[in-house]
Structures are given as C-alpha cells and as structure tokens.
Simulated scan of single mutants.
Amino acid sequence: MGACLCKPKLRQRQKRRKLHRRVPASSISSPLSDAHLIMSDTFDCGVNEEYRFIDGRRFHNVRNSKYMMPCDDDELDRLHVLHYICRFIWKCNYSAPIHDKLSSGGALVLDIGCGTGTWVVEMANEFPRSHFTGIDISPVFPREAKPENVLFVEANLLDGLPYNDNTFDYVHMRFLMTAFSKQEWERALKEIVRVTKINGIIEIMEDELEPRNDGPISRLLHSAFLSDLHSRNIDTTIYNHMFDMLMNTRQLANIKAEEMSTSFGKWADRIGTLLAENTANIFRTFRTKFSSFLGLEPDEYDKLLEAWYCELNECKPYNVGYRFLATKYK
C-alpha cells in the first residue's frame, strides 16, 4: 500500500514560511481581529494578541474557540499528510453526488475549517470551472500562491458566516469534532444550513478518536487526550448524534452516513503506519500536559509511547471514519 503525499499544484510557487506570515484579515469583515486569551495553560505558556505559545508550540488565540491543536508548521505538516491519508482511504476527496455540478462549472463550494487549504486547492485544480472558498480561524492558508478560482477568508463559524442565505451549492467540513461542544455543533449546523442553497449538499466528515480493538496502553494514552477534551465540554462521540442533529434542522433530506474502517499501526503497511504516526504526533504535541495527567515523568511518558507502537502490532486495531451527507430542501 502507498499514498501520493505530494502537495497539490499551485499556480505559483512560494516558500512555506512566507505563506504562514500573519497578514491583515480579508476585506470581508471578520470578528476575529480582537481575539484574546480566555483559557490559561500552566505549562510554559506565553501569549501575544494573536497567538498562544505553549511548550514551544504556537496555538490560535481566538476567544470563543475550543479547538486545541496548534497552528504552527509541524501541525500543518500533520494536517497535510492526514489529507492524503483520507483521500487514499476513501478513494476520493468527497462522497457527495456533486461531480457533474463541479465539472460543468458555476458551483460555489465552501470548506469550513480549511486549515492549510490542501483540500480546497486540490479540488480547485480538479474542477477549474467552479469556485472554492476556504475559511479558518487561523490564517495559515495560502494568501497569494493559489488557483484563480480559490478564495481564503479568516472567519469563525461560531460567530456567523459572512455570507448571505442560500449562497453555496456544496458545503464541506471535516475534523472539527474537537472544536465544538454539542450545543455549538447545533449552532454550527444551523449556520451551515443557512448558507447552503436549496438542493445544495452538505458533507461532514469525522473519525472516531480511539482505534477499535486496541490495548491498555492505547486506552491509557487516549484517556489523557479524552480527559482534556471533556474538560473543554467537547462531545468526543458526536458522530453518534450527527444523523439526528442533521434531521433536527428540519431543512435537510436524503441524510445518510458512510462508514470506512482502516487498519491502524505499523503492522498495517504504509497507511496504517501513517495513521499511527499522525496520532503519535498529537501525543507528542501534548507531552507535558498528558504526562502530568498520567502522573508520569516526561521520560517515562516517552517510553510509554514507544511501548504503544509495539502494542499496536500485537493488538492489530483499526480506525473508523464517517462521512455524513444531506441535501437542503427548504
């Protein structure tokens, strides 16, 4: 097994660090310009008006966001690889029945929580007749080197999207389970439905955080991760409620869920190895916090993480992901 991990084609080449430079927000009004810190971490934490810095990692500093992951180069590399893992597993960048609309042109597409913009840029290159907009709370997306049919905007879904009702033919969102409480999910879905056109399609993708059929070391490491999320009022099994929440909007039809299982760990060839390493990068990101939660010294935590790799080969766990699809009918 193998996956192409090359970056999507851009109209121009530009060095990564230049793309990550903080620049003024889009001309579309953004409520994020006055964002400030409300959550205090006790682990080597610094702060300025734009970012928090914890254990040498850079994090967003958006007042009303629960999203916990960094927004630095290491994290952007992790997200970039994760995009290609998902594309390989699902055999396509999307499951929505939208190909003909995208190909014929005129489709307006919104990607919420676009991060590095990898999905947006790749889709825009594949469907040059349609227009793609990516939004994120952190402006880590390309500002200049991007296809002509792409626009990136700094915006926060929970503050309301800066678009009129019935704007987009297709709204795509993935991997934001760790960003919202259940109540915020309900608000987010209402806003997503609002900006989707009649007969437009919504696609939401999430993975289970814990692999199935795993062992005690895996469950111990994940207990630290889940405990941190629960302390932020994050529902870590939102995929179990997504179908009902989509139904409860009373504006969506043809609601369905697709499920995909993938072997997890070095025993499972290249994709299983990449999936495990992706999770290991999260464990390393929060090494100080998670080792403290588990009552371990940092070096003991490192040894536990090495033992986790061996356990994956013994237990042979698997990861489960979901894509939820719905069509707006009124």
Score class of each variant (00 low, 15 high):
N166P: 02
F141K: 04
G215L: 08
C4A: 07
S181H: 02
H36Q: 05
L226F: 15
T42P: 00
L32P: 00
H80Y: 07
L220W: 10
H83L: 01
K101C: 03
I137P: 02
T249G: 03
G200S: 09
T249N: 03
I255V: 03
T116E: 04
L19Q: 13
E277C: 04
E258T: 06
D165G: 10
F53Y: 13
N254Y: 14
H241N: 11
A35S: 15
A253P: 01
V153I: 14
H36C: 07
E208V: 11
N278M: 02
L312D: 03
V150P: 12
S218K: 11
S231R: 02
C45G: 03
S27E: 07
R58C: 00
A35I: 02
R270G: 05
Q251D: 09
Q251E: 08
I201K: 02
P211F: 02
R11P: 01
M247R: 02
R87H: 13
Y239N: 11
L151E: 13
D41E: 03
A96Q: 10
I271P: 01
E75H: 07
T237S: 08
H99N: 09
K266H: 03
Y301V: 04
I204E: 02
M245Y: 08
N254D: 14
K190E: 13
T285W: 00
H230T: 07
T178A: 11
L161C: 07
D136N: 14
S26C: 05
D207Y: 10
Y163G: 01
D214E: 10
S223H: 04
E210S: 15
P70D: 03
Y329F: 13
S26A: 12
I217V: 15
S33P: 09
W185Q: 03
N48R: 00
D244L: 01
A3W: 13
P24N: 08
F88P: 10
E49P: 13
V23A: 08
K7A: 14
E184I: 04
S33F: 00
K197Q: 05
L32Y: 03
N281R: 13
I271C: 10
I234K: 01
M69S: 08
R58M: 05
K101P: 14
M173K: 15
M177E: 15
N199E: 12
Y239P: 07
R250I: 06
L252T: 07
K7G: 15
S263N: 08
F141G: 15
A280E: 10
A307D: 15
N93D: 08
I38C: 08
N64Q: 14
A25E: 08
R219V: 12
E75R: 11
W308T: 14
H80G: 08
P317Y: 10
S33C: 04
I28L: 06
N240Q: 10
A3S: 11
T133L: 05
I85A: 08
E154V: 01
V153K: 06
I271T: 14
F175M: 12
T273F: 00
C45M: 04
E306L: 12
E203K: 07
